[in-house]
Simulated assay, not measured.
Amino acid sequence: MKKVITSAVVLMMLGTVVSCKKDANTQSSVSTDTLATVLPKDSTVAPKTDSVKAVASTVATLEIITKNDEKYPHDIKLFEDKSFAERVKKLVGKEYDVMLKNFNVEGPIVSDNGIYKLHGCKQHDCPGYATYIYYDSKNDNLNVSIDKDGKITDFAEKGKITVSEALKTK
């Protein structure tokens, strides 16, 4: 009998996690509260948290950018947001520390049709070292472009984001 109850609880949790993943892909904003699984006090089964953390991380990155349109990255402490910083670090690798050090002079977060742009450059040498970060909220795709004295290096998570002329000029 105990095996049957334990199996039922495991299946219920798995269904909840799969359901949450599907909801996260179809909605633009999911509360992390909907991702919690409540187990009976006497349950010996540990909740599976890997999938839940991945979905919550994606949502957090989406929100730190999309909910702060027209705000400056420094004002919202963008690079202190763990999920955002981890994705950028993973994307640019060894360039991260230099990029962060030279992200002094900033423009506000701007957007056009679900694509967001962040810009920062080196103080007193803005054209010499500039970073552009693009986020496609519809496809959860992050791109970083680093311009060092005219030599541009592009980094893309899921392919290059097509940026409109309107967003380029903002």
Rank of each mutant, 00 (worst) to 15 (best):
K71I: 08
G120E: 00
G114Y: 00
D50V: 13
V92C: 03
T44Y: 01
C121V: 05
C126Q: 03
K67G: 14
M99W: 07
S29A: 09
G150I: 06
N141P: 12
A54S: 10
I5Y: 12
N113S: 12
T66K: 11
L39A: 01
H124L: 15
K138A: 11
R87G: 06
A24L: 00
I152Y: 06
N25K: 12
M99G: 04
K168A: 12
D149H: 10
N68K: 06
I161K: 03
K160E: 14
F84V: 03
A156S: 13
G93I: 02
S51N: 15
V59D: 14
Y129E: 00
A56P: 04
S7M: 09
T131G: 02
L39T: 04
P73N: 11
K71E: 15
L35F: 08
M13D: 12
T44D: 08
K41C: 00
L11R: 07
V10M: 13
K138R: 08
T26I: 10
I65G: 02
C121W: 10
R87F: 04
N139E: 14
H119P: 01
K22L: 11
V105H: 00
Y135M: 03
K168Y: 08
K48D: 13
T61L: 11
G15N: 12
K71N: 11
Y129I: 08
H119M: 14
T66M: 11
Y134P: 04
A85S: 14
K2M: 07
S28W: 08
D97I: 02
S51I: 12
K89Q: 06
